[in-house]
């Protein structure tokens, strides 16, 4: 019995050490990736941005922030005011691009509604409403996506046109394209941010601000 304990502890310690060593090597290799420069940077930025048809800020800005979001995701809702705050904090210095990554049950529905509002020039106002009212229409226990229509109506949208536009296959294709490209870029959760083509590892106001500052400071 005593001998068995020693063997068990020895093997367990070796396995755990191996695990910790692998973790260290993995973390080091992922942080040591050299920052891309010149044409490589431009290529990476373009790849992450897609068509950039839902964007804010000048396209010539030094920092391109791309967010893959899901309208039904709670963390995206929490990050939404933070991204707006960053745009206000760094005026004219950020080109913000929004892309879809529908992971939840009603995400495609909500994303289609958002895309349809863009055709009436109310995309960003609609995005605010979608996130503000998310606990009501997107509750995981009892999702009621149809409630969205009532909230969007208050923005003065032509609802008949909106519902018609939502069925447009071009909108479905647009959302699907974002998702496919996002998965290929390694997006596994929402929201995922890319700063000048590089994926942000930590979420939150602090990490987002420091990533932007770092990108601004890079020559």
């Amino acid at each position: 019995m005593k001998k068995n304990i020693y063997i068990l502890i020895g093997v367990a310690a070796s396995l755990v050490s191996l695990f910790l060593l692998a973790t260290m090597i993995y973390k080091q290799s992922s942080t040591n990736t050299p920052s891309p420069e010149g044409t490589q940077l431009i290529e990476m930025r373009a790849k992450v941005m897609g068509d950039a048809d839902r964007s804010l800020g000048p396209s010539t800005a030094r920092v391109v922030v791309v967010e893959f979001l899901d309208p039904e995701c709670e963390s995206c809702r929490l990050m939404h005011p933070i991204t707006k705050k960053m745009l206000a904090e760094f005026p004219g210095q950020i080109h913000f691009v929004l892309r879809y990554m529908p992971f939840h049950g009603n995400s495609v529905y909500a994303s289609s509604a958002l895309e349809a509002t863009a055709r009436q020039g109310k995309f960003w106002e609609a995005l605010d409403v979608v996130f503000e009212k998310q606990p009501e229409w997107g509750s995981h226990q009892n999702p009621q996506p149809k409630l969205l229509m009532g909230y969007l109506k208050e923005l003065g949208l032509d609802m008949a046109r909106l519902e018609e536009d939502m069925k447009d296959p071009a909108i479905a294709a647009r959302i699907e394209k974002d998702k496919t490209e996002g998965l290929a870029l390694g997006v596994r959760g929402t929201p995922t941010f890319f700063i000048n083509g590089q994926m942000m590892q930590d979420l939150g106001e602090g990490p987002l601000r420091s990533s932007i500052q770092q990108a601004l400071a890079t020559p």
Partner: peptide, 20 residues
């Protein structure tokens, strides 16, 4: 036991370290 422990740690490595 070694097979089970390695598989357990391996699966935790994929989900917690590599974030898959």
């Amino acid at each position: 036991w070694i097979v089970a422990a390695s598989s357990t740690l391996g699966s935790l490595f994929f989900s917690e370290v590599m974030r898959l």
